[in-house]
Write a protein that binds this DNA or RNA. Structure first.
Lengths: 403, 403
DNA sequence: ACAATTAGTTTTCGTTCTGAACTATAAGTG
DNA sequence: CACTTATAGTTCAGAACGAAAACTAATTGT
């Protein structure tokens, strides 16, 4: 994910880079689902009308913008020609998780135009088998996009593990049982010949981005996203971008120390957040037996609804330690909002008060009540984030599509 | 400090911005204390020789570079003209701390050309009084620079508190007793008419940067700096830059939660790192009475040397909890190195083993032994960092000095 | 019908980089 | 010692691009 950092320093400075920058600058000023005009873009970007006209011509040629007729606004003067992001361009999003596969198509306006999820126990299968199964889904998604006239510019694949996006490499995905998997060929096969290719991402990171672009996070520009799946994943959004850290693995909130005297964790440490807020921790503290995740979750929710004291205590404890981690993040990184996703969304009613009380105790006045949000993207979060990342890459590098 | 973030997007929107970028690009490729040539710069930057010659001419005119005679390297061909950063350009660094004032002059090659520290109990005085006293020092520093032929391009003032650098505003400096102080006039008075002015910074942040540019941190590009002064301050260096967080206040490691069951902290929370590793905590746990800090510190060191069990236990506990905070930072932010400064430097012998053991227990294999370093900049750290920031501003914006 | 107003295009100009040719200065060679 | 080779640096023509200003187009108001 050092890609994001490379973008920070567009450095050299050929004269041609100016146009590259300005193409992206103009495009950045076209909001999804909002019409604009050349004149308005000139005002917003500070470029002259002449430059904007020329840039827009290129962007129309690249298929990223479309003219949508005259915008007669009743004002005096010649009406502008409406411009909007081309709804017939999109990206593929895909997710491999422990017990399901998901695919989707998101268009440039941020609409989820197609979506399909199938249950599949992936922790036993080899990466090749899983990706073969996924390919059947992506092919259907690509066909659906094609039928709707949507051209897919690229795609993203989210997996629950540590990835190196630059090398298409999954370093480790504990819950899938994958280690050191190189997927360049498989990614290309998911969506052949797309201009921006298919890139790997971490599932919690992608979900965090989905929340930013398409969900609750839109109201903050900085927050900690905590995803309750089999493990406890995280993503840090700062300045409306994903913070990846020096080596691309930031946001591992699940293994921060929230209780030095706490129990041993699978990561080798102890007192990690995951040992209190992970699925297994909550289920076993609630005295819920083995079984499929969905079923155990239903049992837990039933127990909570009945007021079962063990279940209530377990979820309250999870909320308490989520509060510790949130307080520490707020202090250390100056990130004073938190969005909870995955299974935590289902537990909002019980987690919210415990978390708020905890965070107020540890960092008074730092995290306001309206800075605690719960995701409602559910199972589409990661795949929408993966698709969104691909769309952002296209929007940030429009010159690659200019003829 | 949103300035730092603006620099992230140097977007060469105008054609003229290209030159601005390239001036900085060329300058960035001249290492302090290392000679280079136009030809070498052309290779390193990827620009043509023609462009580099033109850019270098401007930089010579701006006084940022100097020609240092012919570099006859014995190789065939015409020898290049040596180019180096102009040692006759520098910046002022100043620090207001609880019990001393410090000033210094750092030149473009990173040499501390002048330095003076005076003891002064500042926690009682008003900001006006303190800055008046500081002005006497900065005037002497400016005179010394002038005598040495050094032109001061700007300056920096480090204070132990939360600052808003863009508005020259100290939001709060608990240990000085300052709240909501606006210092624009005072800063200008410290160094009148300098091209880049004098800017405010947080003391721990500046020390962290000094460590990066002039100290131990040079060997890492990402680390957590922890400063033991009256409080426990911190600075996060990521990608060889200071990470300021969304609102500019990141790095407050002293108030991260390391022990939920721990004692109440002055910040209103409890179990903060500062309650275990702060000066007061260590002194009182070591049974050392009141007195001037230097004296108490000497007592502590003596007790440790004698093998006093209470002192040893106190410092060991501090190391243990510093390890917790370091482990959490490593996991959350993917920052796997730590540099300790301030009074912690003096305690290296006793803190190092406790910290290393702790961090290995909580995040095994994440922080290598050689990724734990102790500062040896002592009292000059903050002022060198403040001066360095000013020099970096100049080097990053050379066009402002081009005639 | 005509003025006023806003949208967008055309034209000219200045800036800055690139590339190629050219000059300058050294070390090696016979 | 002249000549070749290699490297450093300059000069100049050409191209890309945005800025500025003049111009055309399309609409509302009087």
């Amino acid at each position: 994910m050092s890609t994001a950092r490379l973008e920070d320093r567009p450095a050299p400075g050929r004269v041609g880079d100016v146009r590259k920058q300005n193409l992206a600058l103009v495009l950045r000023n076209v909001q999804p689902g909002v019409q604009t005009t050349r004149a308005q873009l000139a005002v917003e970007t500070g470029l002259t009308k002449a430059s904007v006209s020329s840039l827009v011509a290129d962007l129309l040629g690249a298929g990223l913008l479309t003219e949508v007729g005259i915008t007669r606004d009743g004002e005096r003067g010649r009406p502008g020609v409406g411009l909007a992001l081309n709804p017939l361009r999109g990206a593929l999003g895909a997710e491999v998780n422990v017990d399901y596969l998901g695919v989707g198509v998101v268009d440039l306006n941020g609409n989820l135009r197609f979506q399909e999820t199938v249950e599949r126990h992936n922790s036993g299968s080899s990466p090749e088998d899983v990706l073969r199964a996924l390919r059947l889904l992506t092919r259907r998604a690509a066909d659906a996009a094609s039928d709707a006239g949507i051209l897919l510019l690229g795609g993203g694949l989210a997996v629950p593990g540590l990835v190196d996006a630059d090398r298409n490499y999954v370093a480790t995905a504990p819950n899938l049982g994958w280690t050191g998997v190189e997927l360049s060929g498989e990614l290309e096969a998911l969506l052949p010949h797309s201009p921006f290719g298919v890139t790997l991402s971490n599932e919690a990171n992608s979900a965090a981005l989905a929340e930013l672009w398409y969900g609750q996070g839109a109201s903050f520009q900085a927050y900690l996203y905590i995803s309750g799946e089999v493990g406890v994943g995280g993503g840090l959004i700062i300045d409306s971008r994903l913070f990846t850290g020096p080596a691309g693995h930031a946001g591992e909130i699940g293994h921060t120390v929230v209780q030095p005297k706490g129990p041993k964790c699978t990561c080798g440490g102890h007192g990690c957040l995951e040992t209190f807020a992970g699925q297994e921790a909550i289920f076993s503290a609630s005295d819920i037996g083995d079984g499929p995740t969905g079923q155990r979750m239903a049992q837990l929710l039933a127990a909570l609804a009945e007021g079962d004291s063990r279940a209530l205590a377990a979820v309250e404890e999870a909320g308490y330690y989520l509060g510790v981690a949130t307080a520490t993040t707020a202090r250390l990184m100056n990130v004073a909002a938190v969005v909870l996703g995955g299974h935590f969304s289902l537990l909002e009613e019980w987690i919210r008060p415990a978390l708020q009380q905890s965070v107020d105790g540890f960092a008074p006045g730092v995290v306001a009540p309206d800075a605690v949000a719960f995701s409602d993207l559910r199972q589409t979060a990661a795949l929408m984030g993966a698709a969104g990342s691909s769309l952002r890459r296209a929007l940030a590098n429009p010159q690659e599509l200019v003829p």
